[in-house]
Amino acid sequence: MSASDISIQASLVDNKLAVSFKLLLGLYLVIPLSILVYILDQYYWGNYLKAILPSSPSHFILFQILFGTPHIIASALILLGNKEYLQFYKVKLLVMTALIILVFGIGSLFIPYRVLYIMAACWTVYHVFKQQHGIAKAVCQLPSWGFYWLLWISVSAGIFIYIGVFLKNSLGVQQIEWVKMIAFVLTFGLILSTVLCQRYIKTGFGKCFLWSNTLLIVSSFYMYTQQYYFLAILIPRLVHDATAYVFYVTHDYNKHHQSPQNTLFKYAERCHLHVFLVLPLFSFALAYLLQAYGDEMVNMITRWFFDGEIRQAISLGLIGYLSLMHYYTEAFTWQAGSPLRKYIRFSK
């Protein structure tokens, strides 16, 4: 979910459930909880967690199953599972699909993998922080220049932290130090910028939102420097994904709770499954099946029919495509005036 231009306005339909800004702010409690876990591990558990938590990008499959892929699949299910949404956005979806195939498909034959990886990483980080800053914008009421300055310095710092975590095994010692130094300068600059911008915010609640977004970067950077790589990525990702699910479930409840509008929710009603649980359960289950068994299932089929294999057809191909489409579509599907947005209202 990317909320680039959220405003508190009257809904076009009678929505019984509202997105609570207090609930969204409460999700940032993952920051002090992660710091508490770090302190306990440092001083009481003898670095046990540091030793067992994933420390290499190749070990992040569990992370993707739990935190990365499910909300991407959830957003795709909302968009593709409702005919009116698909019809409304079909031109944009087709154009973006063609561009993804051109750049990341055909382009991979000519563009180095490292370049494509960094492009995708930059888009990922931008998507994550654009959502959080977009939501905070409605509460903080910052001047436009302040909003974009904090957003871009957060994104820049986040990109270097991301690179430092996921490319650490392929960077030289000097390169790693440069990445850390740049990330530090950007993080420190973000803190100073937040101090400067907070004077434009009139409410304590707004200032809490402002500093919460800044602390996403600060805490992630600190965990990165302490080599708690899993926590460095977990903190912003968990806040981002949980925030997205708040919007998704609110949308589904307001759209489907009285009368299910698509096949998934009609079957869920027959199974007496509460509307709150449908999308989270289905998206997590589908994410697990695709990540754990998708590639092997495709290879079984291709070996049977073509006596060959397609490497990472699901884990890289399909999920990569869904991820890029997610970053693109979420930039406009929840804005005011969209067919999805009419099922969302806000409360403090």
Rank of each mutant, 00 (worst) to 15 (best):
I8W: 13
A10D: 14
L12C: 11
V13D: 10
D14G: 11
A18M: 08
A18P: 11
V19I: 14
F21N: 11
K22Q: 10
K22H: 14
L29E: 01
S34G: 15
S34D: 07
I35L: 15
V37A: 10
Q42Y: 14
G46F: 09
Y48E: 10
K50W: 04
A51K: 09
I52V: 15
S56Q: 13
H59Y: 13
I61V: 11
F67D: 06
T69G: 08
H71E: 02
S75Y: 10
L79Q: 10
L79K: 01
L80G: 12
A98F: 14
F104G: 09
G105E: 05
V115S: 13
Y126D: 06
V128M: 10
F129D: 04
Q132A: 05
G134P: 04
A136C: 11
K137I: 07
V139R: 12
C140Q: 12
C140L: 13
Q141L: 15
S144A: 14
F147M: 05
W149L: 15
W149H: 13
F160E: 05
F160M: 13
Y162G: 04
L167Y: 07
N169I: 05
L171K: 09
G172K: 12
W178D: 06
V179Y: 05
K180I: 06
M181I: 11
I182E: 03
T187R: 05
F188L: 15
L192A: 12
V195P: 04
Q198P: 12
R199N: 05
Y200D: 15
G206Q: 08
V218I: 05
Y222D: 03
Y222Q: 07
M223R: 04
Q226L: 00
P236M: 02
P236K: 02
P236Y: 03
R237C: 07
A242K: 03
T243G: 08
A244G: 14
Y245P: 02
H251K: 04
Y253E: 02
H256E: 06
H257M: 05
L264G: 03
A268H: 08
R270H: 09
C271R: 10
H272V: 07
L273M: 14
L273F: 06
L277K: 05
V278C: 07
L279C: 00
L281D: 02
S283K: 01
F284Y: 15
A285G: 14
A285P: 03
Y288T: 09
Y288C: 03
Y288D: 01
Y288V: 07
Q291R: 08
E296P: 00
N299R: 01
I301L: 11
F305H: 08
G308V: 00
Q312I: 00
A313S: 05
S315C: 01
S323P: 00
L324Y: 01
H326F: 02
H326Q: 04
T329E: 00
E330Y: 00
E330N: 08
T333S: 09
Q335H: 10
G337N: 04
S338C: 01
P339Y: 10
K342D: 01
Y343W: 12
I344A: 00
F346Y: 15
K348W: 10
